[in-house]
Simulated scan of single mutants.
Amino acid sequence: MKWMNCLISSDVTILDTVRRLDEVSGRTLLVVDPRRKLLGTVTDGDVRRGLLSGHRLEDSVAQVMNPTPKTANNEDSRENILTMMHTLKVRQIPLVDSEGIVVGVETIEELERGPSTRDNWVVLMAGGLGTRLHPLTQSTPKPLLRVGNKPVLEIILESYIKHGFHRFYLAVNYKRKMVMEHFGDGSRWGCEIRYIEEDQRMGTAGALGLIPEPPASPLMVMNGDLLTSVNFESLLEYHQENGADATIGVREYEFEVPFGVVNMDDHQVRGIDEKPVNKFFVNAGIYVLEPSVLALLPQGTYHDMTTLLTDLIAAERKVVAFPIREYWLDIGQPDDFVKANADFVNGLE
């Protein structure tokens, strides 16, 4: 079951809710606001009790929903969530982040079965010079810098494996032998690892042009210097449900102007905003690409991902955004590296 099919807004009528319950075979529906923040849940039993108490089919689902549902945090382990579900005697539970945003749904059947195996190839970009992290990267390539007790690229690899992925390409350049010696063929993690060896810097998209065999299914791509708890399985499902040619993970970024901003019409002052906060969605360095997209890449030349996505948009191919509300950190500066280690020790929240 695709969990996003279980989302409804609070202004949906009880009649439409009944229809939606039929569509999802009677499973629990999640009532959310426009930001996907969980407002409540509704089951067939909730609807029936509501009708018995006098509510009409034309009333909104908010009148009959459970406004205080049990939830699990998306950072919880599968074992803890399964234990919680057995304790609560529920077969389905919403996963929410620290802000109460729904990021998935777990069912007891899926947890007891374990993660499904994904045959999609995952490309992890591990060839950067890491110049901004000098002197840390003068003797160690950035992907092998340790966060907590293991290299950051190993944390990324294990996160994908946790979500059922087992086939990887590592795009390597700077100090490639160190990376290749550490990861080998992947057998230590029970996965398959191959290498894209760049003799010159190719850019994120250019490196994809060196993949020897075109993939048969959507390709996952991620920068090798990110620390995140995003659910990669949900990202892939989102890409497929939207029928996208490319999906880009995006992260909301806030920037506070440290001054009062004067709004003017010509020379006439219309207002003053004191230290306004501007919000943007920024590229989070995580992508899903359809195999057909790779045919657009020029061979043997530098090509960054921004250029590829811009070309797709210009060609009217479908490019969609996947909002990342889970923990996410780009380890680009020394301060970021310090923060990554502190966050890893305290749990990625």
Rank of each mutant, 00 (worst) to 15 (best):
G249A: 12
C6Q: 13
N263H: 11
W189G: 10
K339A: 09
E198D: 03
S53F: 03
V282M: 01
R176Y: 04
S292G: 02
L297E: 01
E197V: 15
D119F: 06
W189N: 10
S292E: 07
S9L: 14
E58H: 04
V221M: 01
V269L: 15
K2E: 05
A315Q: 14
D46W: 06
M222I: 04
R325A: 12
N5D: 15
V105G: 10
A216D: 12
G164Y: 04
G209D: 03
H55M: 11
L144T: 00
T306E: 15
K89N: 15
M305R: 06
V96H: 02
Y327A: 11
L39W: 01
L348C: 08
I161D: 01
E197M: 08
L157W: 00
N278E: 12
D59L: 13
T117G: 03
S292H: 10
V262P: 01
P334N: 00
D311W: 14
R132H: 12
H303V: 10
G127H: 09
A314T: 11
F232M: 09
L329V: 06
E197Q: 08
F322C: 10
V123M: 06
K318L: 10
E99Y: 04
D76Q: 15
Q200Y: 13
V18D: 02
H86G: 02
V277D: 03
H86E: 12
M84D: 09
R270N: 12
L312R: 02
L111T: 08
A205R: 06
H86F: 08
E110S: 14
M180Y: 01
E23N: 13
V338Q: 07
Y287K: 03
L312F: 05
Y160M: 09
L297T: 02
G347W: 06
L289E: 00
E106W: 05
